[in-house]
Structure formats: C-alpha cells, structure tokens
Design a protein around this nucleic acid. Structure first.
Lengths: 146, 146
DNA sequence: CTTTAAACAGATTAAATTATCTGATTAATT
DNA sequence: AATTAATCAGATAATTTAATCTGTTTAAAG
C-alpha cells in the first residue's frame, strides 16, 4: 500500500523531481529515469506522456530525445502533479470514508483531519521544484550511490 | 480513491464506531450495520470477522446473534483497527514513495511529512471510542435521517 | 539515405482490491 | 423437534490499478 498517493502519482512526482535536477537544456529519456528511480520504464514513460499533455513536462521524440520540465522549476508545484494524476479528491473526501462529511455533519475526526489536510495541501503548494532542488539532488544521489 | 485508508479499513472503522453507539449488551447483525452505513453486507461481515479474531469486536452466532464491541469503548482506539486491517506501513513509508526515506536520506518533503504523520498518528491514538461516542451517534443519525 | 534511439499509441496482461455467492454451523425461538 | 436468523468459511467474480508488449512515428547522427 502507498501512503496517500497512487503508485502512478508517486512515480510521477519522483520523475518530475528528477527532471528538476538535470542540467538545463538536457533531456532525459524514459530509460534513464527508469534506472535512476527504479521505476518500470514503460510505466514512467506513460505517466510522463500524460503530464506532457498538461504542459508540466515537455518531450522530444527521436534520437537524443527524452523528457524535460515544461516550464521553469520555479513555476512548478507538487500539487500540480498530484492534481494531474490522482486529482484533488484526497482533499475533499472524509478520511474515514463517511459520506457528506462536512461541518454540518462531521465525522468523529473531522476537525483534526481538516487541519492535517490543509497542512498537507500547504506542503504541496507552498514550495516550488526550484526550492526542492538541493534536496532532490541529494536524495537521488544517495539512491544511486549505495 | 480513498484518502489514506483502504476501503476495507474505512468500512472497519465505520463499523466499529457504529458498534460503539448501540445499546450496551445488544448485538448488531451484519445486515443492520450494512444498512445503516451503506456497506455491502458480506463485506462488512468479513471485515468484522477478521476484527473478531483480534478481539476488537465480539460475535455471536445463531438467531439474535451479531456483532458487538470486544471490550469497553474506553479501551478501544482507532489505531487498533487501522493496524489490524491496513497495518502501520502508512506511518513508516515515504509519502513520495522514495525508498529508504530517513533523516540520513530524506526526500524533499521528509520533515514536513514527518510532522503530519505524527499528528495523524495522534488523531488515531489519543482518543478512545468512548470519547468519540457523541460524535459517532450524531454522524450516524444524520446519515439515516436524510 | 540508413541506422539508431527515442516518444507515442493502443492493446494486453498481471496483480491487488473490492464485492458476491454458496453452503455449513450455531443457537435462540416457537 | 422444527424453524429461523445469524456467524463463519471458502470459493468465485468484478473492478481497479499496475505493468508490459507490439508496433508506429519522429528526428538526430553517422
């Protein structure tokens, strides 16, 4: 089981973070991303294709083609990737699965979860890939060093 | 998509909360729980059977049998149900799905998620079914009133 | 202009999760 | 003793998610 995102979304987030770490102007083929992140190649390729439709990443066919960020890292937030892949229902639905959970008909943990949910939203919204860059580089380096 | 728990776990949590609202000494058959919570009968029955093995709920076969809490509501915490059904990996795994996320090799949101995760854990650990009782009664009433 | 390496498209398979079915056992009630 | 209403057990079906395969298009490099 994943934590809160689907596998597709986790892979998408990782892949985009990876793209934020490569040299400017360079393009990363699916095979490279797959190897660096241990994600099935065809799967990550499909995911990035879908993100390309939303202009979050760009792609280039043919020899020496591959994927790259669709806009400057300073203009991409993690929430965009989540929205594009899993959607935002995570931030609307009741954590216990009760129907119509709302201030008028709250579940037993409604208030507590509301706070958590908004903090989680902030985590994905307040910083850009640019601000995550150093940490992303470090994490990906660690993964391939060992 | 569910928020953080599997459907099985959501149903289990709802069902146990329901059991905490019924009159002491009474037993609720799967059919009743199913109707009140809009959960497939056989499914909720299976889930409660598995919780019965862990003594979180009790069960009684035969005519006028059904399910009931396995111990006083003041001694049951939501985390027990989560642990019994989904397990606790939610509280160990990286929210972005990176392998070996730790203070030594943190993902870009490691610290922020760490705080959130521990708040989520508290939400499931600090209060008992007894303390949720009023809210549970109100929520379940609302669901069936409309 | 041929080769090569890539995205892209569509179909298919595999695995996990969710849901249902069938029958057996159990126990209270009539 | 018979009927009824329930859990329980095991199998199966349906759905969703994850992963793979096959082939086509594209474009750089030799």
């Amino acid at each position: 089981m994943t934590v809160i995102f689907s596998k597709k979304c986790e892979y998408g987030l990782q892949a985009v973070l990876y793209l934020s770490t490569i040299e400017d102007g360079r393009t990363a083929p699916a095979e490279e991303i797959s190897k660096k992140l241990n994600i099935p190649k065809e799967f990550v390729s499909k995911i990035l294709q879908s993100l390309a439709l939303k202009k979050i990443v760009g792609s280039k066919k043919g020899n020496s083609g591959g994927f790259f960020l669709g806009k400057p890292a300073s203009q991409i937030k993690l929430i965009e990737i989540v929205e594009a892949i899993d959607g935002l229902s995570l931030f609307h639905n009741c954590v216990l699965g009760f129907p119509d959970c709302s201030p008028e008909s709250p579940c037993p943990v409604h208030n507590k979860w509301g706070k958590l949910r908004s903090d989680a939203y902030d985590m994905l919204t307040k910083e850009t890939l640019e601000q995550f860059k150093k940490k992303s580089i470090a994490k990906i380096k660690m993964m391939n060093d060992v």
